[in-house]
């Protein structure tokens, strides 16, 4: 198993700095959903990780902890994630994306 980044919707949707989307070296890996927090009564949307593209470098963790000081991102073993975003389930919209969460581990 290997580590991937996991973003806490509760913390992210309360702040919405979007720094992690700008500092990930992988393209279209940390994406942003404008409506993610609204279902839970939070002010903003939230970033999420397309785990099939994440290489586990943890640069986003450093950026979230030290530049944004939000501590919303943790590295987690992929089989410990019950549901996660996968590139095939991402739908692009007008200035936002949405995703259908699914089990990241097959079998």
């Amino acid at each position: 198993m290997y580590l991937v980044a996991d973003i806490s919707v509760e913390i992210c949707a309360a702040t919405s700095c979007r720094l992690c989307t700008q500092f990930c070296p992988e393209a279209n890996t940390i994406l942003y959903n404008n409506d993610a927090g609204k279902e839970k009564g939070l002010k903003y949307g939230s970033a999420y990780v397309a785990v099939d593209r994440c290489k586990g470098c943890a640069q986003c963790v450093w950026v979230c902890d030290n530049m944004a000081k939000h501590h919303a991102i943790k590295m987690i073993m992929i089989d410990q994630l019950p549901k996660a975003a996968l590139t095939d389930n991402v739908t692009y919209g007008e200035k936002t994306t949405t995703v259908q969460l699914a089990s990241p581990v097959i079998g």
Partner: peptide
């Protein structure tokens, strides 16, 4: 713009560069 990153499909796709490479960023 870079502030919209994560909301549109990027021109760059998946690539074989090392994890955490600043050059890729």
């Amino acid at each position: 713009t870079v502030s919209q990153m994560g909301s549109f499909k990027e021109i760059l796709e998946e690539h074989p560069m090392c994890a955490g490479c600043a050059m890729t960023l």
